[in-house]
């Protein structure tokens, strides 16, 4: 073939080989989904998908023989994606880790508050300000200020 000379020319047999590999990997990813891998399911699926993506990038998109700056560009892009995901997960996966923030969602907190609202409370317990004690005006104002 006239492939030599121009570095970017795509080699037909290689394309078909890569395509075959992609099909096999697709079958693998479907197959492993039915295995009881538990917590490993996600990493395995992502690993297979990453392999497939790398094949597409390296051979179909010909990054393997391309100008290195294009490869660098793509690498930086993918690094940024992993940074975005990892750093956000540092937060969301560890919310409330040291006990100073609630791990409850706002919805749950609101629900709790609503339930508390619905409880009947003795009006005696709701008196906080001096004005709440009209019967003791003046004489015992310090009772109110304590609260």
């Amino acid at each position: 073939m006239a492939d030599d000379g121009h570095p970017h020319v795509l080699h037909k047999p290689t394309l078909f080989k890569v395509f075959g590999a992609l099909i096999v990997l697709t079958i693998i990813t479907v197959a492993v989904a039915y295995l009881p891998l538990g917590p490993l399911a996600m990493p395995v699926a992502i690993a297979v998908a990453s392999t497939k993506a790398s094949l597409v990038v390296l051979f179909f998109m010909a990054l393997k023989d391309d100008n290195p700056v294009n490869g660098l560009t793509f690498t930086i892009g993918t690094i940024m994606v992993s940074v975005f995901i990892a750093f956000t997960l540092f937060d969301t996966a560890f919310r409330g880790d040291l006990g100073n923030v609630s791990s409850q969602t706002i919805e749950e907190i609101e629900k709790e508050q609503e339930e508390a609202q619905e409880q009947q409370i003795d009006p005696e317990n709701l008196r906080v300000a001096p004005a709440d004690y009209p019967d003791q005006q003046g004489a015992t104002s310090e009772t109110g200020s304590e609260n």
Binding site: M42, N67, V69, N70, G77, T78, M80, V81, F84, A93
Partner: peptide, 27 residues
């Protein structure tokens, strides 16, 4: 071609937002 690769990484980062949302809610 370099311009296209740069555009592609903007696309990747566009999708990354949705992948972050997926990762967070799945976790």
């Amino acid at each position: 071609k370099l311009g296209m690769w740069l555009f592609l990484i903007t696309e990747v980062l566009l999708f990354s937002g949705m992948f972050v949302a997926y990762a967070v809610y799945r976790q």
